[in-house]
Simulated scan of single mutants.
Amino acid sequence: MAMAVAQVSRIYNLQHPLPALPRFAPHQTTLPTMPSRNLSLVRASKPGRENTNEPDSATFISSADLNYLVKLGAGSLAGAAAIKYGSIILPEITQPNIVQALIMITTPVIVAVVLLIKQSRVD
């Protein structure tokens, strides 16, 4: 291991050798961990408000954001269920059809080209 580190240091012309990797025995059940860092949330104080230990009356998340997240979650669950169980309910939608696939791919491209040509003639 030390020889490999020395070779890499020499190949890449490193001033300091690479740090040694942590070692663990084959019978060891846990991997060595890196030192943890404490993270804290920093918020700006409101103007004119003194630094007090009183909790802020503002909510963590607004009702509009919560409503959006609920709708997003419900839509995601419905889409996942349709993808997973759609072939059981409607097996014909999962049968491969090359003509239908080509139509689905080429139609948006053709429509975009037609719209671009039409728009360029207007200008």
Rank of each mutant, 00 (worst) to 15 (best):
V5Q: 07
V109Q: 08
L72H: 12
Y12C: 00
V111N: 03
F60N: 04
G75P: 02
L18C: 04
L14E: 04
A74I: 14
P91I: 03
S36E: 10
H27M: 04
V111E: 03
P26M: 01
Q7G: 02
L18H: 02
Q28I: 00
A81T: 08
P47H: 07
Y68L: 11
T106I: 15
F24N: 00
G73W: 04
K46N: 09
M104A: 15
R23G: 03
M104S: 12
A81N: 02
T29F: 02
M104L: 15
Q100G: 08
L39N: 08
P32K: 03
R121P: 06
L18A: 13
A20H: 03
A6R: 10
Q7K: 08
A58Y: 14
L72K: 15
A44K: 13
A58D: 15
N53E: 11
L39I: 02
K118P: 04
S120Y: 03
A25G: 01
P32E: 02
Q95S: 02
R37L: 09
I105Y: 07
L116N: 09
N13Q: 14
A80V: 05
I117A: 13
Q119V: 06
R121L: 15
I98C: 05
A64V: 09
S76T: 10
I93G: 00
N38W: 03
T94D: 10
V113R: 07
V114T: 14
A58Q: 12
I11H: 08
A74L: 15
H27K: 04
A81I: 03
L66H: 11
L77S: 08
D123I: 14
R43C: 11
P26I: 02
A6E: 09
S57I: 06
I89C: 01
V70F: 09
S63H: 11
V114F: 10
A6Y: 01
D65A: 15
G79N: 06
I61P: 01
L72R: 15
A6I: 03
P22E: 04
A82V: 11
L14R: 14
P26K: 01
A80R: 09
K84E: 07
A80L: 15
D65V: 12
K46E: 12
N13K: 15
Y12Q: 00
L39M: 05
A101E: 05
K118M: 14
A6W: 01
I117L: 15
A6T: 03
G75H: 09
Q119M: 12
Q7W: 02
R37S: 07
N13W: 07
P26T: 01
G48Y: 06
A101V: 00
P26D: 02
P32Y: 03
S62F: 13
L115C: 10
I11T: 11
P35Y: 02
V113Y: 11
L116M: 14
S62Y: 10
S45F: 07
L18R: 03
A80C: 10
L77D: 03
Q119W: 15
V99D: 04
L21T: 07
A74M: 13
L77I: 14
P108W: 06
A2R: 09
L116R: 09
Q28Y: 01
P91R: 12
P96K: 09
L39D: 05
K84A: 13
G73A: 14
P108G: 04
E50L: 12
T107M: 12
S62I: 06
P96I: 04
Y12I: 00
A64E: 13
I103N: 05
Y68C: 05
F60P: 00
K46L: 14
G86L: 05
N53K: 11
K118E: 10
